[in-house]
């Protein structure tokens, strides 16, 4: 397993101008590594539907690279989205799954069939252009540039160390982050999209 922070550190060097959508417990650390905040986007959440929103963004901005950091708990709630994405074939879409095998935010209970499911296999057979699996940082570092240059939709499954939270929700300390509305406003301003 790889620490999500190491994934982000390696990825950042190859990001280019990509729009990045971090989600899930692991995704909370992305802000520490991003060097282009105006292209970091919070699309909110609704039982796994951030993946769908990321697809909509990629379809609406075909000239922009869109990278989603997804989580396996969210993807399991909405696995049909893999077929939806593959059906529309967004060439600019890179779907990176940070798989910690558990619901980290509720105490670390395992997701169904946590250790045996092959997410990259499911994505590839759903029709993604290419799919990768990594549980070694060096292998990911060796392949990340190829991944970023590949024609999408590309799927990347990475086993990451869970960052389990057990404190009551009200006692958890979160670093200050921009709201969804603020990230949308900043991205639209960056891309010259009218907010009206």
């Amino acid at each position: 397993m790889i620490h999500a922070e190491d994934v982000f550190r390696v990825f950042q060097e190859h990001r280019g101008d990509a729009i990045v959508i971090p989600t899930g417990t692991s995704g909370r650390r992305w802000g520490e590594f991003s060097n282009n905040e105006n292209r970091d986007l919070n699309l909110g959440g609704a039982m796994g539907q951030t993946t769908s929103a990321a697809l909509g963004l990629a379809l609406g901005l075909p000239d922009e690279k869109v990278v989603l950091f997804d989580s396996e708990g969210a993807l399991l709630m909405n696995m049909g989205i893999l077929a939806t994405i593959a059906g529309k074939k967004p060439e600019n879409f890179c779907h990176i799954l940070l798989d910690n095998e558990c619901y980290a935010t509720t105490g670390g209970q395992p997701v169904p069939n946590a250790q045996e499911i092959n997410y990259a296999g499911v994505a590839k057979e759903s029709g993604y252009s290419s799919a990768y699996s990594f549980d070694d940082l060096e292998e990911f570092a060796t392949n990340v540039e190829e991944i970023m240059q590949a024609t999408g939709p590309v799927f990347v499954a990475i086993k990451v160390v869970p960052q389990i939270e057990n404190e009551p929700i009200g006692m958890r300390v979160r670093p200050p982050t921009r709201s969804r509305a603020e990230t949308i406003r900043d991205l639209q301003s960056e891309l010259g999209i009218s907010a009206d």
């Binding site: 986007l41 699309l43 909110g44 609704a46 539907q49 951030t50 993946t51 769908s52 929103a53 990321a54 697809l55 909509g56 963004l57 990629a58 379809l59 609406g60 901005l61 939806t84 949308i184 991205l187 639209q188 999209i193």
Partner: peptide, 9 residues
């Protein structure tokens, strides 16, 4: 959700 992404775009 797909509609939201399109609206943001």
């Amino acid at each position: 959700a797909i509609a939201l992404g399109l609206l943001v775009a």
